[in-house]
Amino acid sequence: MNVSITINGTVYERDIEPRMLLVHFIREELGLTGTNIGCDTSQCGACTIHMDGRSLKSCTCLAVQADGREITTIEGLADGDNLHPMQEAFWDNHGLQCGYCTPGMIMASTAFLKDNPHPTEEEIRHALEGNFCRCTGYQNIVKSIKAASEKMGG
C-alpha cells in the first residue's frame, strides 16, 4: 500500500506492507535510527515520537495509520544546530547514561510540556509512566525536564 508520511518536515512516499509498524518504517525504511525499540508490549517508551504534535509509541501504530500525518522524531527536534531546550537540559543535567531510552524520554517530555508547561516534580514523575530508564534511576531525568520547563517557560 502507498503511504505518504511527513517526517521531520520531509514527505516520504513508500509502498509498504500494511503490517509494517510505524517504528519499523522510521527505522528500517527511512534509516532514522534515533528512535529505538526496547520492548514488544508497548511498555518501555523508547520508540516515542510525535504524531500530529502528540506523543505516540511508534511500535503501537501501523505505518498505514500514519498516512498523511506529520511526524517528528528525535532527529527532527533540534532547530538546525541549535539543540531543543529539552536536549540541552538532558545534557546539562546528566539526564542520560547509556542513552538508549533518551530519545523516547525527550520526545515524551517535550510533548508533556506542551500540555503542562509548568509541571511540579510529582507531575513530571507521573508523566514518565510510559517510559523506562534502567541507568539513571530517573533522578536526573526529572531534573532535566524541570530545568527545561523553567528555561522554556522563560
Binding site: G45, R54, S55, L56, T60, A108, A127, E129
Partner: peptide
C-alpha cells in the same frame, strides 16, 4: 489508562 502515549491515541 495506560500511560500518556496510550491515552493520546
Amino acid at each position: 489508562v495506560g500511560d500518556p502515549q496510550v491515552r493520546n491515541w
